[in-house]
Design a protein around this nucleic acid. Structure first.
Lengths: 187, 187
DNA sequence: GCGCTAAAAGCAAATAATTTGCTTTTATGA
DNA sequence: TCATAAAAGCAAATTATTTGCTTTTAGCGC
């Protein structure tokens, strides 16, 4: 009962996806979110509006789709030689990128979509980055907190602040990381 | 140079606001989000679509406006006699309400709006509830953690999970509360 | 490689939503 | 009570979305 893998007959699936994504990115660089419309994207991508409506349903889903792609990490976390150092520098960079104008917009696009799978994917991107850091620490023989403890202790507070108002300050991010890595710092 | 307070001349500001909000709530109870349109709301509320467009801009802002109102807490947190007990029962109820279908939709509506003030207000509703619990504890002479520590340690992880995929389990919520209230439990 | 097939895309007409200019209503303060 | 400015109504114009039907395309068996 396995469903078929790979592309099915017909259409030009991959090509259209690529040109529409490209069109959205190009327009996002030039215009405000509210000025971008489906017919505009279609014209920029060289496709028909109905193609976009049939493939994505509405502009929110399309924006979410593009945002997930842009939120995918494109490099491995910097290796500083210690778990604490790696997590600190990663968290500071994460907070900065996500609280920037474009970062916030991408997160909002992902969360605004009806289809919750984009948010799930983004959460996994983050978790995977932390796993890389944790695995490196394991290989060095360092003790590391549970991934979920890092998600709760570092990622969630950063994201909560970004979404619900204030921008997380670097000093605060540092405090979160230290509290998570050394739950009971000895004097 | 104080700007004028209270209602300005003209219109029927409050009346329209109330009937439009009522119409949205009534429609939300009957229909899927994607089936609700501005003309539908206008008809239900007995106003013209252009009134809604001019007052709220678009349907997202209107949904956000209604969601903020519905997310406003309508009771003081239950008093169990201790900070830990109060926070525990409050957090469990918060997690349950917010992770329900309607709860998630309201949060999404608030976050999807261009105007970020709704999210800020919701965050403040939560903070105020926690403040009430903390003030009660102060009055009893209990030591309490900082409000921001509760936001980071309890609220943010619950909200992150709701938004980015999984539903927070009661046992996990309990662990978050206990870790925040007793950072170093003595054996 | 050749045609067959089904999925995807194009096209254009129909429908629905949004914007806009102008008129009317209404709450306030003089 | 009257004057005024803000808000709402109305309707035409514009723009976006949906939809039925046709054409194109990529994979599959031969």
């Amino acid at each position: 009962m396995a469903t078929r893998e790979g592309p099915r007959p017909g259409g030009r699936s991959a090509r259209v996806q690529a040109s529409v994504h490209g069109a959205v990115k190009a327009l996002l660089a030039k215009l405000e979110r509210s000025e971008i419309t489906v017919p505009l994207i279609a014209a920029e991508a060289g496709v028909t509006p109905s193609t976009i409506y049939r493939r994505w349903g509405d502009i929110q889903e399309l924006f979410a789709d593009v945002a997930v792609e842009r939120l995918r990490p494109d490099m491995v976390p910097i290796d500083t030689g210690s778990f604490r150092g790696d997590l600190l520098i990663w968290a500071e960079q994460y907070a900065e990128e996500m609280s920037s104008g474009p970062g916030r917009e991408m997160i909002r696009d992902v969360l605004a979509a009806q289809d919750g799978s984009g948010a799930y994917q983004c959460c996994n991107f983050t978790r995977q980055q932390i796993e890389v850091i944790a695995e490196r620490a394991d290989a060095r023989g360092e003790a590391t907190p549970d991934i979920e403890a890092v998600m709760d202790g570092v990622v969630a507070p950063i994201m909560y602040r970004i979404l619900f108002g204030s921008v997380p300050e670097p000093a605060h991010v540092e405090r979160l990381v230290l509290a998570t890595v050394d739950p009971e710092p000895k004097p």
